[in-house]
Design a protein around this nucleic acid. Sequence first.
DNA 1: CCAGACGTTGTT
DNA 2: GTCTGG
DNA 3: CCAGACGTTGTT
DNA 4: GTCTGG
Length: 222
Amino acid sequence: MCGRFVMTHPPDALARIFDAQPDNDLPEGPNYNVCPTVQVHAVTNADGTRRLQSLRWGFVTFWAKALNDGPLLINARAETIVEKPTFRDAAKKRRCVIPASGFYEWTKDAEGNRLPWFIHPPDDAPLAFAGIWQVWDKGEAPVTTCAIVTCAANDTMGRIHHRMPVILDGKDVARWLGETDDPAAPLMRPAPEDSLGMYRVDPAVNSNRASGPGLIAPLDTA
DNA sequence: CCAGACGTTGTT
DNA sequence: GTCTGG
DNA sequence: CCAGACGTTGTT
DNA sequence: GTCTGG
């Protein structure tokens, strides 16, 4: 799955790469420890214009009476996203792209300790996570929330985890955002085997308070 | 009809 | 064990 | 996602 | 709000 990631690209670089109009309240980076419930960058296209927005990571279902009414939905399963009442409207009409410079996954050792891995793209370009978003308007102020779509792991990722985020190829971003006539559903598939690298990092990142580039330094596991 | 779930992950 | 916070 | 709190009474 | 279970 995907429950923690890295964003080191500045907002203006993201706006340029994704050809989107940036909002003026975007998180400034770099952030080597992007956690659920924080504001993240998202590329949306609700009305014909591509925007780079700041959205709260942790999807709130439309019937929720409070922000914490139910578990935090940081992911949505690709296999069922178009059927589940919680997700289907957003999957149909409010898809977004959540950029990431890389992300973390965890394995466990024999003692049950959590061992973090950093998974990264082959170059300096950000990954494009497939996401969905929705405005939750039952509280004092509206909150716009989002979730990252997950799918089965490919063989590479399968070495450490059985799920992975849906990562869009650059040429498929427009299609995912609904800017073309092609259906978006076929894009919800595991990334190609050679498209990601991974290595162990220091368990310091296990804490949501940790920060800094040291979190993605390769761990010497020899 | 009403009451209660609805969602994810991992773990059992 | 379960919930909250980040 | 992981880490850390979680509860009462009375006393300091 | 909408669907399922009873």
